[in-house]
Amino acid sequence: MRRNELSAEEEWFIESMGLFFERQGVPRIGGRILGLLLLVEKPLALGEIVGLLRVSPASVSTNVRQLQASGLVDPASVPGDRRHYYVFNSAGWDHRLELAVSAMDALGQLCQDALALPELRERHKLREAVEFCDFYREELSGAAERWRVRFARRTGTQSSSPSARQRRNATR
């Protein structure tokens, strides 16, 4: 990839990522930004992203903030340059797993709270939902741990570092 244009293959991948993430509830431009950042080796300035994707600066800025909140994009700096740069954060995959675990915690708790109400105590589908949430949360937690070990081996980082969830729970 040259810094000012994309190949047909790169454009295909970026557009496919946009469509994929759109189906996941992320704005298409967010998926396109992720696709672009997955392809580049160096940080990209906001203006470079705008130019390569041919979209508005406001759209890129808004979506980059959302991607930063999700843990998949990090800000970066280039010495001597005051522009805002961004990179794909590979550790963000771990954050995505943690978000899924948190979602199952919240859904399971909601169903348990409903079962505590006299009118809803005997609803078997609510009990099934709680059981599913427990099962899915356990599976996701195991997957997150296996990913951390694999990622640590690949990157040479400490596999014993606490997960986002463990850090969050330690502060409570």
Rank of each mutant, 00 (worst) to 15 (best):
M1W: 13
R2Y: 13
R3S: 11
R3H: 02
N4A: 02
E5C: 05
L6D: 03
S7T: 15
S7K: 15
I14R: 12
I14Y: 08
I14T: 09
I14S: 05
M17A: 06
L19V: 08
F20E: 04
F20H: 11
F21A: 01
E22S: 10
E22Y: 08
Q24G: 00
G25Q: 05
V26S: 03
R28T: 11
G30K: 07
R32Y: 02
I33D: 04
L34Y: 07
L34V: 15
L37C: 05
L39H: 08
V40A: 03
K42I: 07
P43E: 07
A45V: 06
I49V: 15
V50T: 13
V50Y: 09
A58M: 15
S59G: 12
S59Q: 12
S61H: 13
T62Q: 09
T62V: 13
N63V: 14
R65P: 00
L72T: 04
D74G: 13
A76I: 04
A76Y: 01
S77Q: 10
V78H: 04
P79S: 14
P79C: 03
P79I: 05
R83L: 00
F88A: 14
N89F: 11
N89C: 06
N89D: 09
S90E: 07
W93N: 03
D94T: 06
D94W: 14
H95T: 10
H95W: 05
H95G: 00
R96H: 03
R96D: 00
L97E: 09
E98V: 10
E98R: 10
L99F: 12
A100R: 15
V101I: 15
M104P: 01
D105P: 06
D105L: 14
D105N: 12
G108L: 08
Q109V: 03
L110K: 13
A114N: 02
L117W: 04
H124P: 00
A129P: 04
E131Y: 14
F132P: 03
D134H: 14
F135P: 00
F135H: 10
R137C: 01
E138P: 01
L140K: 14
A144Q: 12
E145V: 12
W147A: 06
R148W: 11
R150Y: 12
R150G: 03
R150L: 08
A152G: 03
G156E: 11
T157D: 00
T157A: 09
S160G: 11
S160V: 13
S161A: 10
P162T: 08
S163P: 03
R165M: 11
N169A: 07
A170C: 10
T171K: 14
T171A: 09
R172D: 04
